[in-house]
């Protein structure tokens, strides 16, 4: 018989939530559910309300900017990553399209539910903020590195 792992255990075993206290994991698990996306399925679109954020468990998600009938992909996210940090910041609007590149499993958090819990208990909000800010700073740094177009120059190592 296959034993199903409780959602709270899944949350606590995810790299993003490493070291989460039982109290907080229990609290945020109340806003969470397991989700699956098939390869090619849109998870959300630019301009959608950022009412859900995800921690990716398995698979790959592309962040894309639609333009002139095409989509330019700016980053891919894999198992261990978080998706849709816009849930934290007004006006709570998705800034990119998110599309599953491969079959993807994730935990989806109801952002409205989570924001209410953060407002009610600042320790929860502070804990989550300490987890999100380094990821956001890292992604900003990576985006700046990509913007430098480092590989465009030709002569390196020639």
């Amino acid at each position: 018989m296959v034993k199903i792992k409780p959602l709270e255990d899944i949350i606590r075993s995810h790299a993003f939530f490493d070291g989460l206290t039982p109290d907080i994991s229990s609290l945020i698990a109340g806003c969470a559910r397991n989700v699956r996306f098939k390869a090619g399925e849109m998870i959300y679109r630019l301009g959608d309300a950022a009412d859900t954020f995800y921690v990716v468990r398995h698979g790959r998600v592309a962040l894309e900017m639609p333009a002139a009938g095409k989509a330019l992909c700016v980053e891919t996210l894999d198992g261990g990553d978080i998706l849709n940090a816009s849930w934290l910041v007004p006006p709570y609007t998705c800034r990119f399209d998110a599309r599953a590149v491969d079959d993807t499993r994730a935990i989806a958090f109801d952002a409205v539910c989570l924001r209410q819990k953060c407002d009610a208990d600042s320790a929860v909000g502070y804990d989550l903020m300490k987890r999100f800010v380094p990821v956001m700073v890292e992604r900003l740094t990576h985006a700046r590195i990509q913007a430098m177009d480092l590989y465009a120059g030709g002569s390196t190592a020639q």
Binding site: C73, I145, Q146
Partner: peptide, 21 residues
């Protein structure tokens, strides 16, 4: 790769992500 269209099914992003993993 730093950027790609939808026909690319690999990683997109800086190489630092690969090093980290």
């Amino acid at each position: 790769v730093d950027r790609a269209g939808q026909d690319w099914h690999g990683n997109i992003g800086v190489i630092l992500r690969l090093i980290k993993a």
